[in-house]
């Protein structure tokens, strides 16, 4: 079953000088449980594609369906609800809320959903334990290393039991050892829970670990390889 379907999707940004066509004629599917990387040089449109798949942005043309819903038919609030309930995000800069502790950061998606506080804390603590940070629950982001921050971000992405996790350059700011640890962690989660992972990356370490690679060049798919 396809979790993500794109048909002739394009994205154009209206800049002051002239419209910039970031993506054009993208047709692709991502099946449930896949571990996929979208890669390509800077400016190839991989982050734009990730944003569209994650319903953070809407396509200028074409049809995009994510977790069974057509993006064009959703209001801003409906897209927010869908992101909260079905999609997890991991960012290159970790994007943790600096004034919240690790466990509070992981609790956020559940609190946005309206889950009672005690339940949020219990689930967040369990997810932090799973990513190896069970003893760092109350540490603030500035008290954690880069790898630990990214583990918190992974726990936050997974705490709501999403069907799809989108990770934009998740290993770019990490040393090799930490990067492999994060990759192994996500791979294990993918295999244990069948959670679909879509990465935007140009990190070879990550590309070597995925089962499918979609190469973007100048806003269009140049190659889609498996294995």
């Amino acid at each position: 079953m396809n979790l993500v379907e794109l048909r002739s999707v394009g994205k154009t940004y209206n800049s002051r000088m002239e419209p910039v066509r970031a993506l054009h004629d993208i047709t692709m599917d991502v099946a449930d449980g896949e571990f996929v990387a979208i890669w390509g040089p800077s400016g190839s449109g991989k982050s734009t594609l990730c944003n569209l798949i994650g319903l953070l942005d809407v396509p200028s043309d074409g049809r995009l369906s994510c977790v069974g819903r057509m993006a064009a038919e959703l209001s801003d609030d409906q897209r927010s609800e869908l992101r909260n309930e079905r999609i997890g995000f991991v960012f290159q800069q970790f994007n943790l809320i600096p004034v919240l502790s690790a466990v509070e950061n992981v609790m956020l998606p559940l609190q946005i959903r309206g889950v009672p506080y005690a339940q949020c804390r219990e689930r967040a603590a369990a997810h932090l334990d799973r990513v190896g940070l069970g003893s760092h629950l109350d540490r603030r982001p500035d008290q954690l290393s880069g790898g630990q921050k990214q583990r918190v971000a992974v726990a936050r992405a997974l705490v709501g039991d999403p069907q799809l996790v989108l990770a934009d350059e998740p290993t770019a700011n990490l040393d090799t050892h930490t990067a492999y640890a994060i990759i192994d962690l996500m791979r294990a989660l993918n295999q244990e829970q069948q959670t679909t992972f879509v990465f935007c990356t140009h990190d070879q370490r990550l590309l070597d670990s995925v089962e499918r690679r979609i190469q973007l060049v100048d806003g269009t798919i140049a190659e889609d390889t498996r294995g």
Partner: peptide, 15 residues
């Protein structure tokens, strides 16, 4: 950026 993160996590504009 924090606002963007919260929105990505599903917080609505009203939130």
């Amino acid at each position: 950026r924090e606002i963007g993160t919260m929105r990505a996590l599903g917080l609505k504009r009203r939130g």
